[in-house]
Amino acid sequence: MRIAVTGGSGKLGSVVVRELRANGHNVVNLDVSGQRGPGFVRVDLTDYGQVIDALAGVNDQHDGIDALVHLGAIPAPGMLSDVATFHNNMPSTFNVFWAAVRLGIRRIVYASSETVLGLPFDVPPPYIPVDEEYPARPESVYSLVKHLEETMAVELVRWHPDLSITALRFSNVMWPEDYAAFPSYDADPRGRKWNLWGYIDARDGALAIERALEVAPPGFERFIIAAADTVMSKPNAELVAEVFPGVEVRGDLGEHDTMLSIDKARRLLGFEPQHSWRDEV
């Protein structure tokens, strides 16, 4: 496919661009920063004119695309002020989605966030493992934007029944070099309770995106995307008993199985994580 990736210079985006190209796709990176050269176009996503022009075609870089991967954003709460985060992320996503609709691009995969599940879980989750079945619980402006983006996607596919939008609620993205710190998390289980001890290897994030590009039907779906295991060496039963003793446990937690359920992604996308920090440390 000819694929545009917004934010293709970021932590997840750079790996997505690399992996999609390695698998034979023609990829253009639309970002405000990055290395000048083939496949890179500098675009301010808050400027609709730049967005629709870049998606339509850019000189010798590309002459149109088949699918869109939208990762460009301020990637976490607390990096900028709340207002700056909202004013960047919300208009950027609207501009990207609206330009795609106007240009006839009918396959969109984008980064939602695990934060819509209620992170940092200062209020405990309704049950463990968490899944996509309970209503969004944004606890920050960053997360509020992610919730609003999902709501916008629901309406866009209603207006355009041939449009496919897939929201991937990525867990904390990691590179292999990040794994050296993981054994230290065992000293204080509460230190990583904010996302139920979850993470996602960036290479598996790229895999989830490619699976969604290949198989997602028209309409909107949201998926939690996490590694198959937790960041902890301590067994799940001990973690939950210590940190979330009053929370309902649904099913068998396994010894180290992720508590951010990826069952839906496995079932509908055929997503199966290939990487674990336990293989690297």
Rank of each mutant, 00 (worst) to 15 (best):
R2Y: 03
A4R: 05
V5C: 04
V5T: 02
T6P: 02
R18M: 10
E19C: 04
N23I: 10
N23K: 14
N23W: 13
V28I: 13
V32E: 15
S33W: 12
G34F: 11
G34T: 05
G37E: 10
F40S: 06
V41G: 00
D44T: 10
D44S: 08
D47R: 05
Y48P: 08
G49E: 11
I52V: 10
D53E: 12
A56F: 00
A56K: 02
V58Q: 02
D66Y: 12
H70A: 05
L71G: 09
G72R: 06
P75N: 06
A76E: 11
A76S: 09
G78N: 02
G78I: 06
M79S: 07
D82L: 08
V83I: 14
A84G: 06
T85I: 04
H87A: 15
H87Y: 08
N88F: 07
P91G: 06
N95I: 04
F97H: 03
R102M: 13
R106A: 12
R106G: 04
R107L: 01
Y110V: 03
Y110G: 03
A111N: 05
S112I: 02
E114N: 13
E114Y: 15
G118W: 05
P120I: 09
V123H: 14
P125H: 06
P126S: 10
P126N: 05
P129Y: 08
E133G: 15
Y134K: 12
P135K: 04
A136S: 05
A136K: 01
E139P: 10
S140H: 12
S140N: 07
Y142L: 15
S143C: 05
V145Y: 07
V145F: 09
V145I: 13
K146N: 11
K146M: 09
H147A: 11
H147Q: 11
E149R: 10
E149K: 06
E150S: 02
E150F: 03
A153Y: 05
V154P: 10
L156I: 13
W159M: 12
W159C: 14
H160R: 13
L163D: 07
R169N: 03
R169V: 00
R169D: 02
S171R: 15
V173R: 06
M174Q: 15
W175Q: 14
E177W: 12
D178M: 07
Y179L: 11
Y179H: 08
A181N: 12
Y185A: 07
D186G: 05
A187T: 09
A187E: 14
G191C: 03
R192V: 05
R192C: 08
K193L: 12
W194F: 13
L196A: 11
W197L: 03
A202D: 00
L207Y: 02
E210C: 10
E210A: 15
E210W: 10
F220L: 08
E221A: 13
R222P: 14
F223A: 01
I224K: 02
A226Q: 00
A228G: 12
A228L: 06
D229L: 12
D229C: 13
D229Y: 03
V231G: 10
S233G: 15
P235Y: 04
P235I: 08
P235N: 01
N236G: 01
N236F: 06
E238C: 08
L239R: 00
E242G: 07
V243G: 02
V243I: 07
V243M: 08
D252L: 09
E255S: 15
D257C: 14
T258M: 14
L260F: 14
L260Y: 11
I262E: 00
R267I: 07
G270T: 01
H275N: 11
R278D: 03
V281G: 02
